[in-house]
Structure formats: C-alpha cells, structure tokens
C-alpha cells in the first residue's frame, strides 16, 4: 500500500479514536446532565467522522471504486445528532427545571414546554 495513503488513513483513525474517547470521557467527567450533553453530541460525532473518512479512503484505495455507504452514514449522523440532543435537553428540562429557574423569554410568550403556541 502506498505510504502516503497509509499515513493519511492512520492519522484519521488516531484522530477519530481520540475524539471518540474524549466524548465518552466527558460523559463521565462533567457535572450535571446538561453539561454532559455537550460532550457526546460534538466529540463523538467527529470521532465517527474521522473513522468514516479513514474507511472511505481505505476502501476506495483497495477496490478502486467509491463507496457511498460511508457518505450516507456520515450524513445521517450529522443530521440526527442535533435532533437527539434537543430531545434529551427537553427531557432534562422537564425533569429538573420550572418557569422560575429558566431565564425569561424576550417575547410575550413563555417557553414551548410550558405554554401553548398562539392560535393563528
């Protein structure tokens, strides 16, 4: 195998592994659920991203054809990570906060979890 390709793949693998580990360690180290939420949504996403880049370079080099599966997995994880984070944050807020402990909204209506949306 070409040395340059091997170096690039190895760098992506090491970077991905480090970020994945940092994401999981942050899940244990940080205090409070809402702080822990920051770690996996960011670090783990880039961790998997690094592994995906490495594997797509590796298999493109091995077989000579580009595989779209890695692109699809990367796209899917990038699109869904914010949504899961948002849902988990809502679960946390519902269990641990009420109107008084959250900052006020700038408009006339309260936060969506407490108030109904205005009828249009």
């Amino acid at each position: 195998m070409d040395l340059i390709v091997e170096i690039i793949v190895s760098l992506c693998l090491v970077g991905g592994g480090v970020f994945g580990l940092v994401g999981s360690v942050g899940l244990v180290k940080l205090r409070g659920c809402i702080q822990r939420l920051h770690a996996p949504t960011k670090a783990a996403t880039l961790g998997v991203g690094g592994v995906l880049i490495a594997s797509s370079i590796h298999f493109t080099y091995l077989t000579g054809t580009l595989s779209f599966h890695q692109v699809l997995i990367a796209l899917f994880i990038l699109l869904t990570a914010p949504i899961t984070a948002n849902f988990i944050a809502k679960v946390y807020i519902q269990a641990n906060h009420d109107r008084e402990t959250l900052p006020d909204t700038t408009g006339a209506h309260g936060w969506a979890i407490y108030d109904k949306p205005p009828v249009q």
């Binding site: 914010p82 948002n86 959250l102 969506a112 949306p117």
Partner: peptide, 22 residues
C-alpha cells in the same frame, strides 16, 4: 441544528411563539 453542532453551545428549546431560542 447549527447551534447544537458548533462551539460549546446547545439549543434546547423555542419559546411558544418561536420568537426566541434557549
């Protein structure tokens, strides 16, 4: 989605009239 994925911030909730974001 952008706020959640970028430096140290997570978007958690909209206000009921979608006028501001927490």
């Amino acid at each position: 989605g952008t706020i959640t994925m970028t430096p140290g911030t997570i978007s958690t909730m909209l206000s009921a009239d979608a006028g501001c974001i927490l």
